[in-house]
Design a binder for these strands. Structure first.
Lengths: 218, 218
DNA sequence: CGGCCCGTTGAAGCTAATCAATGGCCGTGG
DNA sequence: CCACGGCCATTGATTAGCTTCAACGGGCCG
């Protein structure tokens, strides 16, 4: 039964935070973590909760560049100042450290050497996948890809099953996928009607037909 | 006079290639440099010419992720295998080196320390800018942004003036901007009619009204 | 219980895609 | 040197998909 699914939005980071120096900080819903134009000295690791990084164009259009979930590292945009704004989605706890210190973790003699490189390369690959999605995929393909991506990230974080909990609003999803909130909503409905997903609540999705969803993603 | 503009497509790399180990290699027009799924052991620096990296979806849709011009480094997509295909646009000369060796250039004691980090961070920022463009900008805004980006890269490479030489076809531009070739062509025409650019030949563009172009980019 | 925010649904409009035909440049070969 | 063929680009007409505008619903919190 889908209803038995309990949203694990607040989860501890799977990466050992002990390996991180720096300070732990908490943010409230919609609180700004850093803003466009501010000096970019720190990097941040999500301990619990979720973060969005985005840019707003002059006329108000917003593009969310990435959602950062428990274990993710962010704050690399821009040098010497941030190109993006980062905001808490709901309550968030972060581990904050100097960028220089983060780069240091990559010295050959440092514990976890190569970790920083791998992190950056993964971010680059995610950004490239985002480009491909926004450049060439339809609304339906984008939504399906998004859901399967969220599912994969949840599973990698230790939650298995097809229940996906979405910390963000429909508007956030729309601004991530380059669509309007109405199109996202309609697409969710279509996927539900066609039996591929269930929508037990606003913030949760259950994948009913993974193979079909996979096929959509093209 | 616009006609006096000579296309400097073939240019020597501004970064001292001597700092690079590795082999020099040449490729013909449309020749594959690496393909999706191949082991990703090397990184490449463009000495002369231009390269496109792209992915093709199952049904043939192509998204170009990046154009690499003289001085640019590429080949970071995917680990352990490439997620993208890289192809020569026209005749290309590349300097090829092991990824591991490239990362080594970043050891504190190595000459040019910090160079590799800076390279990756710049690539990430470009990818994020691409995301914003594809997610939220109109066809006209995309084309204008593209032209000004190409202009900026040419200027940084040592060519000043408003004459831009485009090594790639309209189809390549379309696949980079997430548009069709017809839309790109129409938008070029509109910009020309409105007096913002001139199109002296297929592969060159002259910016006539930089301020107006800037304003379009939003 | 009431208000507010978020999400859903419907109808009309617009942008870019698709389908189709023509134009022009360039390389090749007579 | 000119003629031909092929490829790339442009332009026009129509269509499709997403956005915009508008109204309603439903859950949650005070």
């Amino acid at each position: 039964m889908a209803a038995s699914f309990d949203p694990p939005i607040e989860t501890e980071c799977p990466t050992p935070a002990a390996a991180w120096a720096g300070v732990r900080m908490s943010y409230d819903r919609d609180e700004e973590i850093f803003g466009e134009g501010e000096p970019a000295r720190n990097v941040y690791m999500v301990v619990s909760g979720a973060v969005r990084t985005y840019r707003v164009l002059a006329d108000g259009r917003r593009q969310i560049v990435e959602f950062h979930l428990a274990g993710d590292v962010f704050g690399f945009d821009g040098d010497p100042t941030h190109n993006l704004t980062a905001e808490a989605i709901g309550e968030v706890t972060l581990q904050v450290m100097r960028r220089t210190a983060f780069f240091e973790t990559d010295r050959p003699d440092a514990p976890g050497a190569g970790h920083a490189w791998a992190t950056l390369l993964r971010k680059l690959q995610r950004a490239e996948a985002h480009v491909i999605m926004l450049g060439r995929q339809s609304a339906c393909e984008r939504v399906a890809s998004f859901l399967l991506d969220m599912r994969g990230r949840m599973i990698r974080a230790g939650f298995d099953g097809d229940g996906i909990s979405l910390p963000m609003t429909r508007q956030d999803i729309a601004d991530y996928l380059g669509l309007t909130i109405e199109t996202v909503s309609r697409t969710f409905s279509q996927l539900q009607v066609s039996g591929m997903i269930e929508l037990p609540s606003r913030r949760s999705v259950v994948v009913r037909n993974l193979a079909a969803m996979d096929r959509i993603c093209a």
